[in-house]
Design a protein around this nucleic acid. Structure first.
Lengths: 242, 242
DNA sequence: CGGACTATTGATTTGCGTCAAAGATTGTGG
DNA sequence: CCACAATCTTTGACGCAAATCAATAGTCCG
């Protein structure tokens, strides 16, 4: 629950009492194997899943059995937070790495949000930030070629990993080429070739589950990446802090 | 403000007092010409725009000057509602038809939401429903071919127009082929050819700004359209109605 | 050490983009 | 009410980015 709280605090100011209320949330822990799905959004399920560790993705299947990843989620995220407001919006998720998820009843989250307006604000802001990323993905998939599409995704990953600084740096990158293909709407073969091109140009490289960025500015340019949409602003609060 | 209220009421139950508070919101009215942009999201702007009439779209420009539409908005929608929570998330919108927008200070909306938890809930739910559509668009653009992509968009439009019922029906459709190309990530030429294919198969046709659907089930199948994500559920409320 | 993913490579095909130009609509002002 | 401009739609020819198919290497893990 600690990671969840710090994720909320990164965007919204919370009182000590509210912070305690977040930490008081309880759920049941669950292990998920790498590359396995873990929520099929059945009707009876009344829980939300907090990612405690590992990297996960929201996935949708097209009729031909092709997968599309619509978002990545990191520890502290609740990928189906939207169910607090729209319970019938079920989705499927997959663990990229091995992961631990904590299933929290969404009615518990809802009650906490009703009791503490600051928490409601934090959660609402969280869902908004999520949707800003979704809109950017539509632009990415709809209008950029393979190279730029991948570069953009790598930039986003770099910033969200929290390691983006300086001209060159590295960060954990457990995402397989198949996952990248699912996220960008490309084929695995073409992802492979495009990544080789990025490597050749000394922009981006993956060696053993670690990503290496040589020239951050050049990679951002290649992906037409504008960091704004990730909203890395200091935390705010509009509700009164009584 | 009436259309806005009824849009909120379609998903969330509000008390009479809350309804009055929504109707009490004030803004300045503005006309927008067809196919013209109308919010460039400059720093100083502190307003949100409610669509009073007309059809609008959220647009993003790629570096090559190509446009991507990430969402369509109808009367009663507030396309940049997210700014209530994340004010720096500015975007550009374009009127598809001639439109009237009402600029409301987002601080006004925020204060109303703080005062009336039911309104906060309604707005939060509204942003969630928006983002469900965004996720579906990612799947559409990422994994479906031109024909299915267009069919899916037509299905969504049909449902959101409120006219979808029976085997065949029609509804207003002022969206040009260029707009469709911008929304689906295709070229106008290919949109044209794909629409001719849909017409040949008696699935979908546009005649003079009116869409005609001959075989609703077949069109849904062609677009792999599952109405669930549009969340056409009766209104709910989780906050207490004191 | 063997089985199952994951990555890489080459050959071939195709859906879709681009370019270009001709009609069809629509809207505007004289 | 017509003329003319602007936008939208349609068509054809051509090229290319990316998909598909298929097979070979790595790599990880029990």
């Amino acid at each position: 629950m600690k990671t969840f709280l710090s994720r909320l605090l990164s965007r919204t100011l919370l009182t000590d009492e509210e912070q305690a209320a977040v930490l008081a949330l309880r759920g049941t822990r669950e292990e998920v194997l790498p590359q396995h799905a873990f929520v099929c959004g059945d009707e009876e399920d009344t829980t939300t899943c907090l990612i405690a560790s590992g990297l996960c993705a929201r996935t949708s299947l097209s009729s031909l059995g092709e997968q599309q990843i619509t978002a990545f989620y990191m520890p502290g995220d609740i990928p189906d937070l939207q169910r607090v407001m729209v319970p019938e919006s079920a989705s499927t998720f997959a663990a990229i790495t091995s992961a631990e998820v904590v299933r929290i009843r969404y009615s518990d989250i809802r009650e906490t949000a009703i009791k503490y307006p600051g928490i409601a604000e934090a959660l609402w802001r969280h869902t908004v930030c999520d949707s800003l990323i979704l809109a950017e993905w539509i632009v990415n998939i709809g209008r950029r070629d393979a190279r730029a599409r991948l570069a953009h995704l790598f930039c986003e990953s770099a910033v969200r990993s929290g390691n983006a600084s300086g001209k060159s740096f590295s960060f954990d990158f457990p995402i397989t080429q198949r996952n990248l293909a699912d996220a960008t709407g490309l084929s695995t073969v073409h992802v492979n070739r495009s990544m080789q091109a990025l490597k050749r140009d000394h922009l981006f490289e993956v060696r053993g589950k670690v990503a290496w960025i040589d020239d951050w500015d050049a990679l951002k340019a290649a992906g037409e990446f504008d960091i704004e949409y990730l909203n890395c602003k200091p935390p705010v609060r509009f509700n009164a802090m009584n």
